[in-house]
Design a protein around this nucleic acid. Structure first.
Lengths: 345, 345
DNA sequence: ATGAAAGCGCTAACAG
DNA sequence: CTGTTAGCGCTTTCAT
């Protein structure tokens, strides 16, 4: 094939003795182009080794075919799955992803949002950082009617769509499950309550307590960043509680749960005998820790796919922001040995 | 700020009563522009809310400032770390990443390579799929002198750079460690030997056996895709071996090791008493499985960073492909309980 | 040190 | 169904 010069639609046009416009239209299967011409164009394009110049196209059409993605961290199983889902959905409709991470910092998130804006992404997919307080940094997008879709860690806003699971219900169900196993003092390892996922989970936890006539004890809610260290720290706190120690822990993610379990096991506590455990996310580690961790499963892949599809719909004008403001995905309680008190001891 | 119309260099030019050319040059700190003018341009740009149009720029300059990334899978801890490192390094020099996954299939990898080529990435970063047989699909890049950097799963080629660890040495050291623990029949769970990482690890394993006068037994090398299922299958094979069962297993990744361990533990085998274990990658799961898994640690983050930096150097003409053909990163043996036979039983 | 003019490759009116 | 024309915003000679 022709090595050096890039083939343009003009080369194809000349080759076929038609106009560049026709080639341009033919290449994107414009309906008003004769089927036959269209085929000839496609063949010539292939034969000449044509590749479209997206810059010329973007410059003209003011569409970049690029979606910006801002996530707290790249390196978790959940987020990898989300990205995999996004990548699949995006490539299916010929969109690119520009991915960046906030490292859980509002400051970096703001910087990333600016960058995305300057890169003129057609739309934005965001899962908020741990400590993001407001969404002013997305205002430029709203102003320009660039659709923003939040997922998992969302921000209730008229101007954007959110993809979530029913965190309240999920937490309610885990808590209920634990209470039904006979647990009396259920501790909750929560994250920053600014984030819907954590406040909703706390709410679900509270609701279940209430329904079971267990009074809410603030001392049993431990707020942290839910990482490895926080899990260990929570365990230390539990160990320091002596007789008033909880007999169950619900962590808002599996990481905190697992590292808390490891520390408590080291200290000689039996799980679930002395203390039952449940987490969130169904991370692979939940099936490796012993005993296996009861958790809430929801598909990151589906969430990523849904987020992209929703965004694309907005871009295509299929759905307006107002019609679908929140999409709730399925989640399931997976009961494993870490919470089965009845059958174990 | 001005809401609707995009500000162009012409607007700045008009505002300052100078030419667009000067603005263009001023904006990129061209040396021939008066310092004072330069400052005025920068101020006006900021004040008017100018954002550069990368498409116009790319169209003209034929540079996209975009790096293509093709990885086997997004959703592993190692790869997430690699991507995090790449993202950091790339954003530092204002490059974008377009990320795609081959899902371990040569076919998808070829398709991805085409896509990347058509998107006109300035350079390509690749970790090869499980069964990729040749790199003909990267020939168009070589032909156009678009730099291609392979990482981890590389392909020895004159035309490209590779970023790896010394897999042979690493495997040699794990094997040696196991033999020194008194293991006599060391099994190796290998991956496709087409991939350097797996053939090199096998080579290191063989070398250590040889040095310790242990004869190589092909029956003790189990080749698979090294995923969860393969780990379980390997365990089943081990269990079926009866008396000839190995007393140690070195898996070419932690996933295979861990799921193999779980299955064997279920079957009642003691680790490391009956059978010692070691893996590769230092995945988080290696610290959660009991006993903790001995493994080879190497930084995905560093590898990603190094890959991007090396690519950028090529793009800037700092280093030619010929000068640095392979970069070897540090790796370390981390000894944990799964391989400590002496101190345990 | 600065400017004028041309054109990168494509698409969107508009016309026929 | 197809073509003509103009111009997206920038960079790059070539002048001055």
């Amino acid at each position: 094939m022709h090595e050096d010069k890039e083939i343009t639609i003009y080369d194809i046009a000349k080759h076929l003795n038609i106009s560049a416009t026709t080639v341009s239209r033919g290449l994107k299967d414009h309906p008003t182009i004769n089927k036959n011409t269209r085929k000839k164009i496609a063949e010539a394009a292939h034969h000449l080794g044509y590749r479209s110049n997206t810059f010329a196209s973007s410059l003209r059409s003011k569409k970049t075919h690029t979606i910006g993605v801002i996530v707290p961290r790249l390196n978790s199983y959940f987020m990898s799955s989300v990205l995999a889902g996004m990548e699949d959905a995006a490539s299916r409709v010929n969109y690119n992803l520009i991915i960046s991470q906030s490292l859980e910092k509002a400051g970096k998130e703001i910087a990333n949002a600016h960058t995305m804006f300057n890169k003129r992404v057609d739309g934005l997919l965001v899962s908020l950082a741990y400590d993001t307080g407001n969404i002013n940094h997305f205002a430029p997008f709203f102003r320009k009617k660039i659709p923003v879709v939040f997922f998992d860690r969302i921000y209730a806003s008229e101007e954007s769509t959110g993809i979530v699971i029913d965190n309240r219900k999920a937490a309610y169900e885990v808590t209920k499950h634990l209470l039904e196993q006979g647990c009396k003092r259920v501790m909750h390892l929560a994250g920053n309550l600014l984030r819907n996922v954590y406040s909703d989970r706390l709410a679900g936890y509270k609701k279940a307590l209430e329904e079971h006539n267990v009074s809410y004890d603030e001392g049993l809610v431990h707020i942290s960043t839910l990482d490895e260290k926080s899990g260990t720290a929570a365990a230390e706190r539990i160990l320091s509680m002596g007789k008033k120690r909880p007999d169950a822990v619900i962590a808002a993610n599996d990481t905190a749960a697992v590292y808390c379990m490891i520390k408590l096991k080291d200290a000689g506590l039996l799980i679930p005998g002395d203390i039952a455990f449940a987490g969130f996310n169904n991370d692979p580690i939940s099936k490796i820790i012993e005993p296996n961790l009861t958790t809430i499963n929801y598909s990151g892949y589906d969430m990523g796919e849904t987020a992209v599809n929703s965004l694309i719909n907005h871009l295509n004008g299929v759905s307006s922001v107002r019609t679908t403001n929140t999409i709730i995905l399925r989640s399931d309680l997976i009961i494993r040995a870490s919470s089965l008190k009845n059958k174990n001891l």
